[in-house]
């Protein structure tokens, strides 16, 4: 009998995971030190990073074409916002409400989108986000409509840390949430469930012939993806204390896809890198020229698609591999 033990089960990936999480924490810490006056912006990056991570679960790990991811983000944002204005003030509970709403919306979206493939699936996803957008717009008595949902006043985090004007509490709450979600997703994508999803992306027929239900597996991933996006939305609602229609817009979905392609899909790190770069460029360049900052993003996107199809994270990992390969 072989003595060989499974790699993932033997936990040899843990040091790499810990280093990755430490790098994210360090990057967050550096952001706090270097940009103390931009904590609200940094928290927005974290919130959107959760959205892009959730998109990566569907596109990068399952091969599902979608441009409707902000419907799940918006579902979480509105659910947390509505719960908050109706008396639920505990931030952790609000994040949980966002996750639940996003998860349920994800189930619904999965049930619809998985009835089609390719281009029809993509069109369905656009219809889905437009539908959510219109629902949020029309249900103004609950959502605030085009004026947005105001009056969100989260209580102190863990009963100790009040949400301050400078956004310190929101930033650290967001960073903690991101680390937790990232650790959980790292585990999920390497689990047999995660492997099955990647197998479905590559060859769904083979997965079926192995006795694994493709649709139930993808539905589960939609629910997980929705929960992650919903947490991102809830974080955004807590941090800005307002939820607007832009949180459930086609534009946000499309931008999230651009961020993912820039960073590199099929990698959780790629999702984070793409978000930071896109929003960083938006923040800096749009301040200089608010009308043409997308030109720079467009050029970057063309360059990445043509010369680095695995995204900027792929470029980085290739560079590290070449460096390690040196004699």
């Amino acid at each position: 009998m072989s003595e060989t033990r499974p790699l993932a089960a033997s936990g040899r990936r843990w040091p790499r995971d810990v280093i990755g999480l430490a790098a994210i924490a360090l990057a967050g810490g550096a952001g706090y030190v270097l940009f103390p006056d931009s904590l609200a912006f940094l928290t927005r990056i974290i919130s959107i990073a959760l959205l892009v991570l959730s998109l990566d679960l569907l596109i990068g790990y399952c091969g599902i074409a979608t441009l409707g991811q902000s419907a799940l983000y918006g579902a979480g944002a509105y659910a947390a916002g509505i719960a908050a204005v109706n008396g639920l003030t505990d931030p952790v509970a609000l994040i949980a409400v966002g996750a639940l709403a996003g998860g349920v919306a994800g189930l619904l979206m999965g049930a619809v989108l998985l009835r089609a493939h390719g281009l029809p699936q993509l069109v369905l996803s656009i219809a889905f986000v437009q539908l959510f957008h219109e629902m949020a717009n029309k249900a103004a008595s609950i959502t605030g409509g085009s004026d947005g949902l105001y009056g969100i006043a989260p209580g102190p985090l863990f009963g100790l840390f009040a949400f301050d004007l400078y956004g310190k509490t929101a930033f650290f709450a967001g960073l903690g949430l991101l680390l937790l979600v990232f650790a959980a997703l790292s585990f999920v994508v390497r689990s047999p469930f995660g492997m099955t999803c990647r197998g479905i992306k590559e060859d769904p027929l083979r997965i079926r012939a192995m006795g694994i239900g493709v649709r139930p597996t993808l539905i589960k991933m939609f629910a997980l993806s929705g929960a992650v996006a919903g947490m991102g939305g809830a974080l955004g609602a807590i941090a800005t204390q307002v939820v607007g229609l832009d949180s459930v817009s086609f534009e946000l979905s499309a931008n999230a896809l651009v961020m993912l392609v820039l960073g590199g899909f099929g990698s959780l790190y790629g999702a984070l890198i793409g978000t930071v770069i896109f929003l960083g460029v938006e923040h800096e360049v749009s301040a200089i020229n608010p009308f043409h900052w997308m030109t720079l993003v467009g050029v970057m996107l063309i360059a990445v698609v043509l010369f680095a199809p695995r995204g900027l994270y792929g470029v980085m990992t290739d560079a590290v591999a070449r460096w390690r390969g040196r004699p």
């Binding site: 060989t4 590559e202 192995m210 694994i212």
Partner: peptide, 30 residues
């Protein structure tokens, strides 16, 4: 053959496990 080309050998075997424990992969290596 239709192995999943983007997955490692071990990850391919994980998919084949379905509901079985990960330790069952040792059977494949044996």
């Amino acid at each position: 053959r239709e192995v999943f080309k983007s997955l490692t050998v071990e990850e391919n075997l994980f998919v084949g496990l379905k509901e079985r424990p990960r330790s069952a992969i040792a059977e494949a290596y044996a």
